[in-house]
Design a protein around this nucleic acid. Sequence first.
DNA 1: CTGAAAGCGCTAACAC
DNA 2: GTGTTAGCGCTTTCAG
Lengths: 322, 322
Amino acid sequence: MTTIKDVANYANVSVATVSRVLNNKGYISKTAEEAVLKAIKELDYRPNSVARSLYHKTSNMIGLLMPDITNPFFPELARAVEDVAMSYGYTVVFCNTDEEMEKEKTYFEALKQKYVDGMILTTSNMDSTKYDEFDIPLVALDRIISERIPTVVSENKKGAMEATQHLIERDCKYIAHLRGPVGVRPADDRYNGFIEIAEKEGIGYVTADTQFSIELAEEKTLELFQSHPEIDGIFASSDVTAAGAMHALFKLNKQVPQDVKIVGFDGIPLGTMLVPSLTTIQQSIYKMGEKATQLLIDQIEQKAIDTYYHEFPTSLVVRHTT
Amino acid sequence: MTTIKDVANYANVSVATVSRVLNNKGYISKTAEEAVLKAIKELDYRPNSVARSLYHKTSNMIGLLMPDITNPFFPELARAVEDVAMSYGYTVVFCNTDEEMEKEKTYFEALKQKYVDGMILTTSNMDSTKYDEFDIPLVALDRIISERIPTVVSENKKGAMEATQHLIERDCKYIAHLRGPVGVRPADDRYNGFIEIAEKEGIGYVTADTQFSIELAEEKTLELFQSHPEIDGIFASSDVTAAGAMHALFKLNKQVPQDVKIVGFDGIPLGTMLVPSLTTIQQSIYKMGEKATQLLIDQIEQKAIDTYYHEFPTSLVVRHTT
DNA sequence: CTGAAAGCGCTAACAC
DNA sequence: GTGTTAGCGCTTTCAG
């Protein structure tokens, strides 16, 4: 490993001079600059970023905490974060917390110790005050943690209302809602949107709690039909649970969309892969990831942040399940 | 930020002593140890890992280069890597290279400068000699780069042979193979496996080149049926392309599996979500990720590596498309 | 057993 | 314009 000292020796200047040309700071004579550049090239020197970090207390790394990259909602988000981070010269460290507070805490600490310049949180099971204590740039993505942390979310409630309305317009008389994990904010918002429309329209409905698991969704759907055979519409809180519901219907020998109509939520590629393809509420996943990263970098680079709360519109994408 | 110096002052010892208790190295008296431990606790001190990195020339970070986390084959792999890394106290930096040599090079350099302790490569478009030059621990995962780099792959060819055999046993007379990206090793191996069995069994066949894109797979399938309407079996080189084929068949009004049977490759969750669910060649994705990470950490920790080449068995999972 | 001090590679005063 | 030097926070000889 060649160091700044080697370069200085080779170019017959001091390390300070080398540092100056490296950072374009202070006055350097043309000759000195050339000598240094030549030395750098010939020795194939690259500054050691750990040493820089130590001095600057900054690492050009950002942390990304998410529940589980294996859940098909997250890869696109992660991709967006990585793309933007990369374009600004930041590198991303990623961590799966499984919605477990312990893991979240461990990672949060570990990343702080690594001097990450900021973190994007797509998970939040820690006491929100825990985050507040720390003076590291943070952004909440698809979660709401505290109004002091810039936040990027979808219009979950509005989307859910639209989905429900759509089922009603498609003539559904009795709608089941496969609710997402209770306590997870976006899922709760969707639940509330569903209830609001169902009540307002005076339609029959029933709900069941699920997780982001296809098997569980299938099972719950089977149960629902046992107790409520009159169900003719399903609003699932995610595309994955919608897929689970479709399996259940297949088993029950119900035709989609003739006997039962389905709307999902997320707009992940899975929806188009299903046969019939899934009507869903499309979120601007990639854009949300971009925005969150932008907000984080703005904070890191001390730029003023105008708005702390960003809600991205959703849109109904009608495909073949309705 | 509280430093080792603060702890030393608080405990009335020298920084050397603090360092010793931190690392359980050298002799420390009970009293000194207790004083230090108390100081650490009361000041809520955590060692700065950047400073440690600078001294040790190690960062407890590993890099993970993959083509695109958005491709559903990769999240599980990434998850396995992260899980194992985490359990050994390593943190993972992840990068999407899009199979582009430029990005790969950029990331490779960037990570080296960050002192990552090693890298897992699920991508390889750089000249393999480029990797050899560098003396950083490396593991090739789902790719083969050089025999000097420990490698973890699936039995791609064998799996493909089994898939083809299965279609033949299911009475397919004319089989199409949706080939993966030409030049990507696992895809080429699958292609070769297919050809070998098709030739050996003297069955009719045709192939088409695809990428990991559902749309393209659908399009190519449509084209294939135009020129070869007698196709009654499809072996797709990935589950995603299999899904594309299913869409095409839906459009063509062909029944699966009655008119046409399909086998995919990968064994990603998508397969179970499709209706009918997809028969596929299951790879041990998670295990491969684990093994690769283990191999990397062994190298980092200077443990001897017994075998450089690890091939994981695949297995035929029969579901409803055959 | 413990402390002083050098040094990991780099940056930024502060002199000259 | 350029060099000297004191750190950034930590580890590890080397004395004592």
